[in-house]
């Protein structure tokens, strides 16, 4: 039992990653508000970022600047996540633009109300 506690306590960031992705999925599936679904998408995505940045970290490392004292943390995941953050904002912007159109069309951002309006 204490082994299991040790295993997870030495990997707190990965546990937080699992929780954040779970919360993101919950918001995506659960909420009726379409805006909140986009928030859930963002939560999910930043959870994955946490996984990458954690995998780049080493305890004795400094920031990836060569003028600083060596050894440095892994710079490659940082680059990937920098790209992913910008792509994530692009996805959010397009989703929000579509939501503005949905609101113009149906006067609501509630998923079930939109579905009702579509059926009638």
């Amino acid at each position: 039992m204490s082994d299991l506690v040790m295993v997870f306590s030495s990997r707190v960031a990965y546990v937080a990653f699992a929780l954040l992705v779970g919360i993101g999925v919950f918001v995506l599936v659960d909420s009726d508000n379409l805006l909140k679904k986009v928030v859930g998408l963002n939560l999910f995505q930043t959870g994955v970022f946490l996984f990458f940045i954690t995998s780049a970290f080493r305890r004795d490392g400094s920031a990836p600047l060569l003028s600083g004292p060596g050894p440095v943390v892994n710079p490659l995941p940082h680059v990937l996540i920098l790209t992913a953050i910008v792509v994530g904002v692009s996805v959010t912007a397009v989703a929000l633009a579509l939501l503005v159109r949905v609101y113009d069309e149906y006067e609501t951002l509630d998923e079930s109300e939109v579905k009702e309006a579509q059926q009638s």
Partner: peptide, 9 residues
């Protein structure tokens, strides 16, 4: 986690 560039972004 020593990722200042990502933190700024």
């Amino acid at each position: 986690f020593r990722a200042p560039d990502v933190a700024l972004t």
